[in-house]
Amino acid sequence: MSDPSPAAPAAGRIVLITGGSRGIGLACAERFAAQGDRVAVTYNSSPPPEGFFGVKCNVTSTEEVDAAFTAVEEHFGGSVEVLVSNAGVTKDGLLLRMSEDDFASVLDANLTASYRVAKRAAKGMLKARSGRIILMSSVVGMLGSAGQSNYSASKAGLVGFARSLARELGSRSITVNVVAPGPVETDMTAALTADQLANITAAVPLRRMAQAAEIAGAVAFLSGPDAAYITGAVVPVDGGLGMGH
């Protein structure tokens, strides 16, 4: 039986990663570039390293999202074939101390922004009758986390959004999946004390945090030929922290 997934063009697929200038996003960009794809990343303040096509974009703005996609299409001469919606923010706080703006702005940046970029990417994918969309959720979307009700709600919302899109776009050979990381070693966690790190990893069965490259591996798999028949899935990369959820 032939592989049902479309073959990648000789020049590599056009991949767009939001929030791709550091951390998990950059690790994904490096992974795609290493396998020969043409990679573009959006960023807010820090441009990506040399070798990637960077587009400054605030994903909470529909106009900026549209402009970013247009720039990528013009630069590479085609539509985005793989979208990784990775950009996100946190504004942690206990419920009674959390302002309505802190709640709404996190949902806008994490959940509604994924709607914006997925909607824009779907135009080209529907025409091509092919595409991969990967949304970056979190273990706390299913597990919950005290002081992160806004962040947890936004990440849980991505699951329902992705599964609805998977049903909506599947007839055009477009897959939509979710990656749910647990604790990941980043610039932010590098500033934590040894005691803080110990507390974080104590709840993880593998007793360590993930490397960003390990998250990128799951993203690359979901965008590759071996995942052509996977859609609407939530793939945990959390060291076992959220098992059963």
Score class of each variant (00 low, 15 high):
245 H>C: 08
241 L>H: 06
98 M>S: 07
44 N>A: 15
105 S>W: 07
18 T>M: 03
136 M>H: 00
124 G>A: 08
232 G>N: 12
192 L>P: 09
139 V>Q: 13
61 S>N: 02
175 T>C: 09
118 A>I: 11
22 R>K: 15
176 V>D: 02
204 V>F: 08
241 L>D: 08
82 V>G: 03
41 V>F: 07
114 S>M: 04
121 A>Y: 02
223 S>A: 15
51 G>H: 08
219 V>Y: 12
21 S>D: 09
235 V>I: 09
173 S>R: 15
239 G>K: 06
48 P>E: 01
170 G>F: 05
110 N>P: 10
117 V>R: 00
205 P>K: 10
16 L>C: 07
40 A>C: 07
113 A>I: 07
174 I>V: 14
163 R>H: 02
185 E>D: 14
216 A>C: 05
52 F>K: 11
232 G>Q: 11
10 A>T: 14
197 L>C: 03
151 Y>Q: 06
30 E>F: 04
94 L>I: 11
238 D>Y: 13
221 F>T: 12
75 H>Y: 12
52 F>N: 13
57 C>K: 04
55 V>K: 00
15 V>L: 08
149 S>E: 07
83 L>P: 10
59 V>E: 02
211 Q>V: 11
168 E>M: 10
235 V>S: 03
131 G>Y: 01
31 R>Y: 14
136 M>S: 00
195 D>H: 12
235 V>C: 07
17 I>W: 06
166 A>D: 10
149 S>G: 11
157 G>V: 14
218 A>S: 13
77 G>L: 02
83 L>C: 10
153 A>S: 10
190 A>R: 15
205 P>I: 13
172 R>F: 15
85 S>K: 08
240 G>T: 11
88 G>S: 08
185 E>Q: 14
112 T>E: 05
19 G>Y: 08
187 D>H: 04
64 E>F: 07
168 E>I: 10
141 G>I: 14
223 S>R: 00
9 P>V: 11
171 S>A: 14
64 E>M: 05
136 M>T: 01
81 E>S: 12
199 N>P: 00
